[in-house]
Design a protein around this nucleic acid. Structure first.
Lengths: 310, 310
DNA sequence: GCTGGTTATGAGCATCGCTAATGGCTTTGC
DNA sequence: GCAAAGCCATTAGCGATGCTCATAACCAGC
């Protein structure tokens, strides 16, 4: 025998329990008509009346009441099974893979907030700078630096970076940095792909010779900045927290033409109306496989990450 | 938590049991694609994979297998409850109301066949010539004489009557009835609304004076015919069985212009191509309320009745 | 390599069933 | 009594669901 639809059975059960279609409809979040139709169809399928009216109340037949009871237990069993499974799935860790710089400079400061949020439940946060394969490595959500154009992967932008000149307040005071020109005399930490020349060229000043340490690793650079070794040009996303907390500052942010957009040598830059909203071509992206089964949790975490970046 | 559709859950259960979507699809009488999509959707709702492929076989995850088991028991519970209810409804008698003539002359001979057929299970056959109200009297299916145009009731024609001259073989032999003219001399049983004149007029013979008993009750008339009292003009549906068994016969059916259509005095009769298929305006109809919940059984019985009349 | 099996996936489309509106009926409160 | 507010029944309309169909990709056995 073909089983009636689950909804019809639940409608019957609810109608018996409430003693009316309208109340049942409210419980099931549908209109009263829907319940009426479902029960009518059910009566046709089962070949017997389920209710008879008495005044304004619907009285279930004894058989219908009995059936409703059995449906209730069966449905509760289904519900329990499904919810148990879903809960178990929820307890399974969601693997978040981030690279070292993002982990240290962006995620770490926000971690307490994330862990207190539902999106942060049962996270397995892996810090790894290279990821071979999302599926093979069991990664549910990655945060990767790039242009958001990974093949086969969905991506959502987390950061829209500007480049900031940063140093500690102590450093700025010590070296009396008031104008951009003052930077010429101060120790400047160089990094390979964010040359100071891109600032001084805009200011039409001569780029000073390398007078401080050089590193291609922004973590090391920022460590050095934090210890007062010098000023550096860094991605805004790496120092959001330090700037907010006052551990770092952007010296002379009034007089310096900052934020700077990062422009590679030879890269075409189009003028835009509002440079503040210029999307940097590169940035951090949340990245995931669209066919991953944990979409709901991925969505939740992804939404949290994008919101936290604002 | 919103429950997934019952079909999706059953698809999962069947797929686990068969170890593949195609076999599950065959069991559920849908295409393989339908099962695939249902399970994909289920995985999305539950937030976890349910199967992983190994070669050509689909291996359920342990959790999915567990879930499938719980679903199986819950669905079996539902199935059992629904089938128990339907079976109980089936055991409830289906009330068939027929009038006395139909019961005696049409239904009674066919009763053994009907009772051996599923359509005849749990019948409550009531013989009553007047029916006030289908709902109030709890009548599921009525057989009524008329034109099939009862308001608020659905009707399906059971009999398309002709009028036959009938008598017993003994009677025909005894009175040497060879031609229509022979009837003029034989005892003829008269009934109010099927006058012999309608036959003799067509034969362009004078209608003989009333030379036999008269009754308005066809049962009495037929009883008299059966006892060899005389010949009579009767509805074909009243004598189908007696003619088939040879208890009655249609004398001189070659030479007499029979069957006759019943024509009331003054009634317009249109010529038709094949008079054998001329639908009599009046006849027996199966009649029921379209909103009766026992439509399935009514349909079954109604189909049996129409088929039995052919 | 070929054949016969499997699942995955997308387009198209029919069906289903919900919503919304309406009507008839009952109860309640004035 | 009457009006108002509740109930269920029923209809038309329409949007979403989810099926079928067709195709692709993949696997196993010969």
């Amino acid at each position: 025998m073909r089983l009636p639809s689950l909804f019809a059975l639940r409608a019957l059960e609810a109608a018996v329990r409430h003693g009316g279609y309208s109340a049942a409809a409210r419980e099931l979040s549908v209109t009263q008509g829907a319940v009426s139709q479902q029960i009518r169809k059910l009566e046709a399928e089962l070949g017997a009346s389920l209710f008879h009216r008495r005044g304004n109340e619907m009285v279930p037949t004894p058989e219908a009441a009995r059936l409703a009871g059995e449906i209730a237990t069966a449905v509760a069993g289904l519900q329990g099974a499904v919810e148990g499974f879903a809960a178990a799935a929820e307890r399974e860790p969601l693997v978040l893979s981030v690279d070292g710089r993002f982990a240290a400079r962006w995620l770490a400061p926000k971690l307490p907030r994330l862990l207190a949020h539902p999106a942060g439940a049962n996270l397995d946060i892996r810090v790894e700078d290279r990821v071979a394969n999302f599926t093979a490595d069991g990664i549910d959500l990655g945060v990767r630096f790039g242009r958001g154009d990974w093949p086969l992967l969905a991506a959502e932008r987390l950061t829209t970076d500007r480049f900031y000149v940063v140093c500690t307040p102590q450093f700025a005071a010590e070296h009396r940095i008031a104008t951009a020109r003052d930077l010429l005399e101060a120790p400047l930490i160089h990094s390979a792909d964010r040359p100071w020349s891109m600032l001084f060229d805009r200011l039409q000043l001569p780029t000073p010779p390398v007078n401080g340490p050089v590193s291609n690793d922004s973590l090391l650079v920022l460590e050095a900045v934090a210890r007062g070794v010098g000023a550096a040009i860094v991605r805004s996303s790496m120092v959001d927290d330090d700037l907010a907390s006052g551990r770092l500052m952007r010296p002379n942010s009034d007089s310096l033409p900052l934020p700077l957009d990062y422009v590679r040598p030879g890269q075409l830059v189009r003028p835009v109306a509002d440079p503040e909203t210029l999307p940097a071509p590169y940035g951090y992206f949340a990245v995931w496989r669209p066919d991953n089964r944990k979409q709901r949790r991925i969505r939740l975490l992804c939404d949290w990450l994008t919101a936290a970046g604002k």
